[in-house]
């Protein structure tokens, strides 16, 4: 029987991987160590499939079609951006499980858009390449994109519910599979706005507290206007965190790292949730 064995949040800030080693700061080293820690934990969990939930940045999907949520059920490659230390090209997908999740969703009130062929961006390519695929037991990465970068957004509640759907679908899969879900996104950041470069650590800590406690209530209570005011337009990416949390409802965890600084444009949060780490009372 398939099961979800753990969840993570992590950033996908391109600046981390564009930065040459000669310019690494202590913070950059801590950030890279956090990616290493997640990669190791995915291995320790014995994950065989990793579902990465990311956000399009108005690149993969354009004004002619903007899906609310989409799952890759076929060929996957990426990331399309070139980073000196990250491989490009084909990414193994667990096609049967991805197709099952899509079909299970359509039978249970979640009309997935599907991608039969997709060249993912850094929001999925970074977690896939840096944390998932280096583990030999990981046979596939299933990409999921939420509408959290471009309006109209998927609602926060729907993003959380979609995580629950993913959990139900995985648990209905008859084959043995150990699945990890990653919510990939920055916390506070103002992308392309006059405040670009600003972060709000108080907002970031509030979000991370929710993730680590396994309690999404304070996040779900935020209106989009409040998120924009406190965390900027980039903070709409907390939907990816909610989706992961919905796949592990009530499950707490631990903070791995939190960093912000002039090297990057976003608050960078790393956390793990899992049944062996803590369950909300």
């Amino acid at each position: 029987m398939a099961q979800i064995v753990g969840g993570f949040i992590m950033p996908h800030e391109p600046g981390i991987f564009y930065m040459p080693e000669a310019k690494w700061t202590d913070g950059q080293r801590r950030v890279l160590a956090a990616f290493d820690a997640i990669r190791a934990r995915i291995g320790e969990l014995g994950a065989t499939t990793v579902i990465v939930v990311g956000a399009d940045h108005y690149v993969l999907f354009g004004p002619t079609c903007l899906p609310s949520y989409v799952i890759g059920i076929g060929d996957v490659s990426g990331p399309y951006e070139r980073f000196a230390t990250i491989k490009q090209g084909e990414i193994a997908n667990n096609v049967p499980l991805a197709l099952h999740i899509a079909q299970y969703g359509r039978a249970h009130g979640f009309d997935w858009a599907v991608a039969k062929s997709i060249n993912v961006d850094h929001s999925i390519g970074v977690p896939a390449r840096v944390c998932a695929l280096p583990n030999a037991a990981v046979r596939g990465v299933i990409p999921v994109y939420l509408a959290s970068g471009v309006e109209p957004f998927i609602s926060m509640q729907r993003a959380y519910a979609l995580g629950g759907l993913i959990r139900d679908a995985v648990e209905a899969w008859p084959q043995d599979e150990r699945v990890v879900v990653i919510g990939s996104g920055g916390i506070s950041h103002w992308v392309g706005l006059p405040q670009m470069g600003k972060v709000n650590p108080d907002f970031d800590r509030k979000i991370l507290d929710c993730v680590v406690s396994g309690d999404p209530a304070a996040m779900l209570a935020l209106s989009d206007d409040e998120v924009l005011e406190q965390g900027g337009n980039g903070a709409f990416e907390i939907r990816q965190f909610l989706c992961m949390m919905g796949a592990l409802p009530g499950v707490g965890g631990r903070l791995i790292a939190y960093e912000h600084g002039p090297e990057w444009v976003t608050g960078l949060g790393f956390a793990e949730v899992g049944n062996d780490l803590g369950r909300q009372a």
Binding site: H57, Y58, G149, V150, E151, V191, G192, L193, N233
Partner: peptide, 17 residues
């Protein structure tokens, strides 16, 4: 005129890109 474009409602992701 990226400010003007944003003023017309264009996504900041697009103006930056």
């Amino acid at each position: 005129d990226v400010a003007g474009l944003q003023g017309r409602g264009v996504s900041a992701l697009l103006t930056y890109g």
